[in-house]
């Protein structure tokens, strides 16, 4: 009897995979290869003709103190964001799997920041953190934490380097926590109920069950959400672009935003590409390490 395509697992798998493969090749693979080429070229925004310049672009960016400042900011931004995203994601996931009335409404509200386009959310935060009209400042003023008028009546969230970085991190965490929560929620609901019940029968309290049953069982998904969080944070510039433009004094400048300012606004596409690609080897190594760790945890 002739088998139809629908009956051939191998063919069917490729058919289903093909849209993703084409998408990734066209929108990630090709631009990536292009970016690698650009990083070793003298291409500018006005002259796309390719001339090989070796590592000149990398040499130039290494001589630029703003590049090193951006690199430091990127690590700080990513490390703190990732930590907060994982911790808050776990807490939110625990809340979301609990049984209570209105659970679906809470789930919907929690997911909203993730489903809202990044820039729309950032624009809303831009107003919340505004130097004149900030509602956050208004609340602080009403509570007596800020002066009624004059000096000390505003926080200037985006005007102080430390507060600006904290604001950028906070908005990023606000955006990505729902994603981490959903990933972890999937891990939590997959834990066999009898394990938890057995631990209860053995007299384990909430915290003991949390640290000795739940977290170890969900460690692979926690690692995956950390990986997502790290990559999304490393490669994001929308929040910085909308909130601070990298300021004040480049205090929130990250590699992606600096690549954009140098490469597109400044016209030096080669240097922009070199800046954008600088962390690629590191990110690749981190991603491989995390995925291997996840695999080991799953095998165990």
């Amino acid at each position: 009897m002739r088998t139809r395509v629908a009956d051939r697992d191998g063919a069917l798998a490729w058919i289903f995979l093909m849209p993703s493969v084409v998408y990734i090749l066209a929108l990630v693979g090709v631009p990536f290869v292009l970016a690698v080429g650009l990083a070793f070229s003298d291409v500018t925004s006005g002259d796309p003709s390719f001339d090989f310049v070796g590592v000149d672009n990398f040499r130039s960016i290494f001589d630029d103190p703003v590049f090193w400042q951006s690199l430091g900011n990127t690590f700080l931004f990513t490390a703190i964001s990732m930590l907060l995203i994982v911790v808050l994601g776990k807490i939110v996931a625990n809340i979301l799997v609990a049984d209570f009335r209105g659970k679906w409404v809470v789930r919907f509200l929690v997911l909203l920041p993730w489903t809202t386009p990044a820039t729309l959310g950032a624009v809303a935060w831009l107003w919340l953190l505004d130097s004149i009209y900030s509602p956050i400042d208004w609340v602080l003023r009403q509570l007596g934490f800020l002066a009624e008028a004059g000096n000390g009546s505003n926080m200037y969230w985006l005007g102080e380097p430390a507060l600006a970085m904290a604001s950028v991190i906070a908005v990023h965490v606000w955006r990505l926590t729902p994603l981490a929560a959903v990933i972890m929620m999937a891990g939590l609901v997959a834990i066999p109920k009898d394990m938890d019940e057995a631990a209860r029968m053995d007299g384990a309290g909430y915290w003991r069950r949390m640290f000795e049953v739940t977290i170890p069982m969900t460690m692979p998904v926690i690692a995956v959400s950390a990986l997502f969080g790290a990559i999304f944070t490393f490669t994001d510039m929308a929040v910085v672009d909308v909130l601070t433009n990298g300021g004040p004094n480049n205090a929130t400048q990250v590699l992606t935003s600096w690549a954009f300012f140098r490469g597109i606004d400044g016209g030096d596409v080669g240097q922009g590409a070199a800046i954008a690609l600088f962390l690629f080897p590191l990110l690749l190594a981190a991603a491989i390490a995390i995925l291997r760790a996840v695999r080991r945890l799953e095998v165990r």
């Binding site: 631009p31 990536f32 292009l34 970016a35 386009p117 990044a118 820039t119 729309l120 950032a122 624009v123 999304f232 490669t235 994001d236 510039m237 929308a238 672009d241 909308v242 992606t256 690549a259 954009f260 590409a273 954008a276 690609l277």
Partner: peptide, 11 residues
């Protein structure tokens, strides 16, 4: 090269 170009454009 730059993640979220679409989002950036909107931004």
């Amino acid at each position: 090269m730059l993640h979220g170009v679409g989002a950036l454009g909107l931004g």
